[in-house]
């Protein structure tokens, strides 16, 4: 029997009245893949991620996470970690308390939770500040704490919406290294970001969403070879999202 794909979607659609936010998206992402999810503002990326995270019910189509339908939140929950655009944290708690709370919700055993929390706090240079209230953190520290939270229960699939937003270069590098490590295992990373070099460096597969439709998908190198402007992921992005003129007008890199 074939093992299930980490993320599968078939005709995934979300409509708000007459407006279609996501229009028949098909996905088939094997375990251990880093999937770079690109698209202009308002293309429907966050709506797609929220449907995959079980937070939004699709108008049509189906989707599965680790073989579990996204309409069954209880079945999907143990398999998914989610980092939304705004760090989901309580200002009044310390980072350690926030992570302990999340570990509690995930029903992780106490010792195991404590080990993981300490390891991840160390990894992200947060250990020294872990007993400070999150309300006193910089944006980058909050983002790192939220990322640790998303990874805390070692999910099969992590859905990350702009994970490097607000991070300094060192922290962003830590995130990229960690995502690469996760993908080297069996963890699947669904990565939505505007920072194309991150996708270029990490992604095994890139999907570009435009006006709710998946207009391009494939290996980054293959996509770059097909782009009219030729050469970079930015050219691919501009090409398939309707900004080919802008791509063509871009000066040649030395």
């Amino acid at each position: 029997m074939r093992s299930p794909q980490a993320i599968e979607a078939d005709g995934l659609t979300k409509r708000y009245g007459d407006a279609t936010a996501v229009d028949g998206v098909d996905l088939s992402i094997p375990p251990g893949t880093v999937y770079g999810f690109l698209g202009p503002n308002g293309a429907g990326k966050t709506t797609t991620i929220r449907m995959l995270a079980t937070l939004l019910r699709p108008t049509a189509g189906t989707a599965r996470i680790a073989g579990q339908p996204v309409t069954d939140r209880a079945a999907v929950a143990p398999h998914v970690g989610y980092l939304p655009e705004s760090p989901p944290l309580f200002d009044e708690l310390t980072a350690r308390e926030q992570l302990q709370y999340h570990a509690g919700l995930q029903d992780l055993p106490g010792d195991e939770a404590a080990d993981r929390i300490e390891r991840l706090l160390d990894r992200f240079d947060l250990a020294a500040d872990a007993d400070d209230r999150i309300g006193t953190y910089s944006k980058g520290m909050q983002q790192k704490t939220a990322l640790v939270q998303a990874l805390l229960h070692d999910p099969d699939v992590v859905l990350l919406d702009e994970p490097t937003s607000g991070l300094d270069p060192r922290a962003a590098r830590t995130v990229r290294d960690l995502l690469a490590e996760l993908a080297a295992g069996e963890t699947t990373v669904f990565l939505s970001t505007h920072i194309l070099p991150v996708v270029d460096e990490l992604a095994d597969v890139v999907g570009v969403l435009s006006d709710g439709r998946l207009v391009a998908e494939g290996d980054p190198d293959a996509l770059k070879g097909r782009a009219e402007g030729g050469g970079t992921l930015e050219d691919v992005f501009l090409d398939v999202t309707g900004d080919a003129d802008l791509a063509a007008a871009r000066p040649e890199e030395p």
């Binding site: 929220r50 995270a53 209880a74 999907v76 929950a77 143990p78 939304p84 989901p88 200002d91 919700l105």
Partner: peptide
Amino acid sequence: TPVLPTTLVAPIT
């Protein structure tokens, strides 16, 4: 509210 997305996704009844 601040953490609702992750709480809803967590396996707590």
